[in-house]
């Protein structure tokens, strides 16, 4: 090692700012290796992400995730029919889950006793008159896609609740009815199903 007092003089950088000068000391090796590592990684990353497309892009990942969501939705709908909805409505766990959802989301319009009534915007769900069809699948369609009457009716709930919770809350409503009684009830409009396009009023 050279004389500690003078060994740096030749490393002094020429520029001067406000009388402050700077030594050209070497950076610590661990720092340099971290830096070089980051540079190399960024090149690999850039290449594999943008050119080689070895890594998945965000777009593909989102598309894949959305496809999975859609798949789950279709799978859930696939099982939905008048029969399966009736089965669900006789399952105590399902109905209890539906009741909890109903108390949070639905009472505001349909009332705690499901009868709606004065001051409440919803329709009565326990009388013998149905607005969009006297079938479980019609009720399910209205909850999922919203009322065909987009101007004043109920909105779609599927984004908020997801298909499973929709079937639970429908099961809760159906638990107040029987198959025979619902078939005998009147409907104000032709029964709709999940594929019925919305109508403007």
């Amino acid at each position: 090692m050279s004389d500690p007092k003078n060994n740096q003089d030749d490393h002094l950088r020429p520029h001067v700012y406000d009388g402050i000068q700077e030594y050209d000391n070497r950076l610590p090796n661990w720092w340099l290796w971290t830096f070089y590592g980051a540079v190399i990684l960024s090149v690999i990353y850039w290449f594999s992400f943008y050119d080689a497309q070895i890594m998945e892009s965000d777009t593909t990942r989102i598309d894949e995730a959305m496809a999975k969501v859609e798949e789950a939705r279709l799978a859930a709908i696939g099982e939905i029919s008048n029969d399966t909805l009736w089965q669900m409505s006789r399952n105590p766990g399902f109905v209890a889950a539906g009741e909890a959802i109903f108390k949070e989301k639905c009472v505001a319009c349909h009332g705690p006793d499901l009868k709606a009534g004065p001051g409440l915007a919803g329709v009565n769900l326990v009388d013998d008159e149905w607005k969009w069809g006297n079938q479980p699948i019609s009720v399910y369609s209205v909850v999922t896609n919203g009322s065909p009457d987009k101007m004043s009716g109920m909105q779609s709930w599927v984004n908020e609740l997801g298909p499973q919770k929709v079937s639970q809350v429908v099961a809760f409503v159906l638990s107040h009815h029987t198959e025979q009684e619902m078939a005998d009830a009147t409907t104000l409009n032709p029964p709709i199903n999940l594929k019925t396009p919305p109508v403007a009023k």
């Binding site: 000391n25 950076l27 090796n29």
Partner: peptide, 23 residues
Amino acid sequence: MKAKSKLPNLDTVTTINEDGSRF
């Protein structure tokens, strides 16, 4: 160049050797 002992000075950091290695 690995020194076994060092005299601290104001111009360099004692724990970083001149070649950037750790002291």
